[in-house]
Design a protein around this nucleic acid. Sequence first.
DNA 1: AGTCGATTTTGACATACATCAAAAAAATGG
DNA 2: CCATTTTTTTGATGTATGTCAAAATCGACT
Lengths: 186, 186
Amino acid sequence: MNPLIDRLRQYGDLSPEAEQEVNKRTRCFQKRKDDFLLRQGQVMSTLFMLDKGLVRAYFIRKDKEVNTWFGLENMITGSILPLYTEKPSFENIQFLEDSTIYSISVTDLNELYKIFPELNLIGRKMAEELCVILEERITSLHTESAEERYHSLITSFPGLLQRVNLGHIASYLGITQETLSRIRKR
Amino acid sequence: MNPLIDRLRQYGDLSPEAEQEVNKRTRCFQKRKDDFLLRQGQVMSTLFMLDKGLVRAYFIRKDKEVNTWFGLENMITGSILPLYTEKPSFENIQFLEDSTIYSISVTDLNELYKIFPELNLIGRKMAEELCVILEERITSLHTESAEERYHSLITSFPGLLQRVNLGHIASYLGITQETLSRIRKR
DNA sequence: AGTCGATTTTGACATACATCAAAAAAATGG
DNA sequence: CCATTTTTTTGATGTATGTCAAAATCGACT
């Protein structure tokens, strides 16, 4: 019924009372391809679970878009800065396909942490899992060649290649589209 | 008296009972320059607070050391993988100066999370803060040139340059020592 | 099927950074 | 204070990737 809650349960137990309250504050949105969920500079943000569709985060640097991550079905995500600090997001979040999300606002989330301290275990597990993912990405960017990063990507996000254009992939990898094209020719 | 606890308190409240139990499980160690706290492949690990000294994490790739992070006074750190998953560390943790640390084992930490669920708020805040730091590093590696990364480093870790040799810095930045030397000449 | 716009590939050339070897400078220890 | 080791710099050259321009391919729409 509420896929966000199902996802949260994977991290830890949720009492019926907490579940009810999380449910009450969850909103379901239908988004079209190219719609934005968040724009650079916003502080107000949400934690959301992508039920269907595809989403990317990116920012502009030297007049070019830089993709920071992709969100696929069943992932729970959000923009780290507004979610974990009071600071505005430096990234835009935009849908690359028609999508369905279940989201909860940071404000509601923080209230819930206060009302139901048990949620902190789930929040901790989520953040810890994210640390592991971020560390992997650091290692990849730190030590791998463009070609190695490309192969890491297609193994960790199988299917992504069929859904987004190569410009998006190249930007995520930190290389130009031309270089990616040459890598793929091999 | 227990600097690790002082540090934890910065993230959230700690009941006297929890404090006592954390205290009981905290160990203070004196380490010499070049000593190791953790070696690649170990699962058993600790969360620790560096009271005095300097520490680095690194792994070996293609016969070369790659520095992943530095720990300075008052930082609370550990190796992400063994700390947040059941997986062995891929990195070594080694002291670069004679150091004093206060540490708690993952096993104890996880027990404490069970006994005192209130600790999950602190654990959540710690992991969330780490996410923000990791994201900054990703952005730096993703979009900045070697020279820009060098300048980012000296502003975010002032004083580090005076304490470690340039080989360590270059490795952290993902460039060779020769390139770093040339960047610095400008 | 044909046209228009978006995406991908290709080519020529530029640049940042790596590699290897050696010299210079600085730190360490007797 | 000298000798040895470690760290840093310098030079010559190689390689991966970037830039810019153009061609080729793909895809959506009428």
